[in-house]
Amino acid sequence: MTEHITLTVNGVAHEVDVDLRWTLVDVLRLVLRQTGTHVGCEHGVCGTCTVLVDGLPARACLILAGQADGHEIETVEGLGTAEHPHPLQAAFSRHRALQCGFCTPGFLMLAAGLLREEPRPDPARIRDVVASNLCRCTAYDGIIAAIEDAAGSAGAGHPRDLG
């Protein structure tokens, strides 16, 4: 049952025809071809598909296309670029907060959502929040250090203005 929906992804409105039972992560990857958001477990456990929906972190595998209709989605593509990394991306690089990188888009968006609401979370709060996502390369110490480091930067909870 294909229907017309409107999604705003990183500030750009997209009108797409999708089956409303598809998950948001499949719409992002398979329809919009924005593959920065990864898909792992498809039942809300691993967190690699974490995106921001109306500014709050959410699992893109647990949101159906119909539920996302009319909402604002932010993905890792909106954070920064290789040439102009977002403060969180730069901090993840500095602190070696990734190894294979599969979980990284989810951690970045989780952290961006956290810092937008709480600009200076203490390490215990960061630990609590990142417990929601799985990193099998066990880079948690680096991830926590990177988020703490980026928390001091201007605009750490917001996408870079790529002008």
Binding site: T23, H43, G44, C61, L62, I63, Q67
Partner: peptide, 26 residues
């Protein structure tokens, strides 16, 4: 009925729940 979907969508993805209709009240 689907609201936030945080319990129902995992059940749907695993096909442990197979309703033929979803009513979204969001």
């Amino acid at each position: 009925v689907i609201a936030g979907g945080q319990s129902l969508v995992p059940l749907l993805n695993f096909r442990l729940a197979r309703p033929s209709v979803l009513v979204d009240i969001g």
